[in-house]
Simulated assay, not measured.
Amino acid sequence: MTQNPFLISPQDLADVIGRDGLSIVDASWYLPAQNRFAKAEYAAGHVPGAVFFDQDDIVDPTSNLPHTLPNAAIFAEKVGALGLSDTDTIVVYDGMGVFSAPRVWWMFRTFGAKDVRLLDGGFPDWQAAGLPIEIETPPIDPARFSAQLDEDAAVFLPAMKAIVAEGAMQIADARPAERFAGVAPEPRQGVRAGHMPGAYSLPFLSLTEDGRLKSPEDLRKAFAAAGIDPDRPVVTSCGSGVTAAVINLALESLGNRQSKLYDGSWTEWGSAADTPVETGPRPGS
């Protein structure tokens, strides 16, 4: 089986730690209901040399939405201060395996980094392999990250409205099926329940197994079961733009270079006054 170019195994990462041009990023982030605290877990132990990427801080400071993309200048400043360069090989991971790290994988690529990998199985598999863990925060030498937003990678509200109205692209929703159908409430106040007209339900957990991305064959089965053609253009969405990136990672792993991520995701769409919302499963599903 061809190796996924976006993944790196714990042992393969352990073999190259310390090499010039390699940067490691702890991209852990958790929902309040998970009752886990990413910064505290990082302080208690992390992959040696890893810096912590705060997904609540590296955002657009003018937006009232969670996890909104910052502009290129802010992104460059923030990640440069972490010692990260766009010319590095950047390996990201999280504390669940495949949950929040794909969002940061997508962000680095969207702002111009050329070689970004995901640690296969994340920190749990690193620990399970008995590999070294560091408690101390590594010294950081500020770096230059030359950032430029790839406007083909992200979708914002005006374009999303047009996509929905015209049925111009497949829409894949990574939220749990109950939230997609509107039978479970949204966790954020003021956000309506349901989904965008024409969207398909593809919970991100259907693309993972034991904290790892599924095989290409199983990924294709998951897309087919959801009614999505993974070889055609897809725009992804979720609650706030984090787990949507798991779908983007899966699509890119299957060779789809036409995937986009709706940055405002359901928090923006469901709280807007002029956006159509449907409930129930997708007709025909």
Score class of each variant (00 low, 15 high):
119 L>H: 02
74 I>S: 11
233 P>A: 12
180 F>P: 03
119 L>W: 02
90 I>G: 02
237 S>Y: 04
214 K>H: 07
227 G>W: 00
129 A>G: 10
133 I>E: 11
127 Q>F: 00
195 H>A: 08
43 A>Y: 06
130 G>T: 13
282 R>C: 07
121 G>I: 00
119 L>K: 03
254 L>R: 02
261 L>N: 13
232 R>F: 07
26 D>R: 05
271 S>F: 01
129 A>H: 14
281 P>L: 12
147 A>C: 09
70 P>M: 10
188 R>N: 00
29 W>I: 10
79 V>F: 14
95 G>N: 03
20 D>I: 11
238 C>T: 05
194 G>M: 05
207 L>D: 01
157 L>F: 09
82 L>Y: 10
193 A>F: 09
249 L>S: 03
117 R>Q: 14
135 I>G: 08
218 D>H: 04
284 G>C: 10
58 I>P: 05
89 T>N: 06
149 L>T: 14
279 T>M: 00
258 Q>D: 05
233 P>R: 06
120 D>Q: 02
211 G>P: 13
111 F>E: 10
11 Q>F: 02
31 L>N: 06
154 A>E: 00
21 G>F: 07
79 V>C: 12
155 V>H: 03
89 T>R: 09
73 A>V: 14
10 P>Y: 01
271 S>T: 12
52 F>W: 02
65 L>N: 11
42 Y>V: 14
181 A>H: 05
10 P>H: 07
